[in-house]
Computed example of a mutant assay.
Amino acid sequence: MIEAGRRWARGDLDGQPLNEALEDAARFGIDLPEDALAQPSFELWEDHARPLDAFLAVSGQWRVAPMGLAGVRYLGLDYGAVGHGFDLAGIALTPSEWADFRTIEAGAAEELNRE
């Protein structure tokens, strides 16, 4: 589940190469094979689909701390906003699904804060 959060943060949750990187390489005359940026396969177990869908529904609700010229540090999701988002989307997670949701959040925060 941590890898799902990391992939969300990188923008490659679907495992496809980032077209932007291929476009940049072409712009500089670098010929990259299509599979040069492919990510290793990522499989999501059916039991983890609901926590991931829940995360995607509220993935814009991050709490951040300013770090001056260094930008921001992602602290975690704002659970007050997450609760309202869940209510509006009709999402109710079991305690086990909530734990998986938190694991996805941890992976995303780790990747977002990578230097």
Score class of each variant (00 low, 15 high):
Gln16Thr: 10
Ala70Pro: 01
Leu18Ala: 15
Ala25Ser: 13
Pro95Arg: 09
Trp8Asp: 03
Trp98Leu: 14
Pro17Gln: 06
Leu52Arg: 02
Glu23Asn: 13
Ala25Phe: 13
Leu69Met: 12
Phe55Arg: 00
Ala38Pro: 03
Gly85Cys: 07
Ala89Met: 07
Gly29Asp: 07
Gly83Ser: 11
Arg6Ala: 13
Leu22Lys: 14
Leu37Met: 09
Ser41Thr: 14
Glu34His: 09
Glu105Asn: 13
Leu52Gly: 02
Leu52Asn: 00
Asp100Ala: 15
Val58Thr: 01
Asn113Glu: 11
Ala106Gln: 11
Arg50Tyr: 03
Ile30His: 15
His48Ile: 01
Ser59Thr: 02
Ala36Tyr: 01
Glu111Asp: 05
Gly5Val: 05
Gly11Asn: 05
Ala25Tyr: 10
Asp35Ser: 13
Asp31Asn: 13
Glu111Ser: 15
Ala36Leu: 09
Glu97Val: 02
Leu13Glu: 01
Tyr79Asn: 12
Met1Tyr: 04
Val72Trp: 02
Ser96Met: 06
Arg6Asp: 01
Glu23Gly: 06
Ala57Arg: 01
Pro51Ser: 06
Ala109Ser: 15
Glu20Gly: 12
Leu22Ser: 06
Ala38Leu: 13
Ala99His: 04
Asn19Arg: 09
Ala54Thr: 01
Glu97Ser: 04
Leu112Pro: 03
Asp35Arg: 13
Pro66Ile: 04
Pro17Lys: 08
Pro51Ile: 02
Val64Gln: 12
Ala106Lys: 08
Phe86Trp: 08
Gly60Ala: 04
Gln16Arg: 10
Leu18Pro: 02
Gln61Pro: 00
Gly60Ile: 03
Arg114Gln: 11
Phe42Cys: 08
Asp53Val: 00
Trp45Met: 14
Ala21Met: 12
Arg50Glu: 12
Arg73Tyr: 06
Leu112Val: 09
Asp78Trp: 01
Gly15Asn: 07
Arg27Ala: 14
Asn113Gly: 05
Phe42Gln: 11
Phe28Asp: 05
Ile30Val: 15
Gly11Ser: 11
Glu34Leu: 13
Asp24Asn: 10
Asp14Trp: 05
Thr94Gln: 05
Gly80Thr: 13
Phe42Ser: 05
Gly83Thr: 13
Gln61Tyr: 10
Ala57His: 05
Gln39Asp: 08
Gly5His: 09
Leu75Val: 15
Glu97Phe: 05
Glu3Thr: 11
Gly71Met: 15
Leu37Gln: 12
Gly15Glu: 11
Phe86Arg: 00
Trp8Tyr: 08
Asn19Trp: 07
Gly11Val: 06
Pro95Glu: 08
Gly68Met: 07
Glu20Val: 14
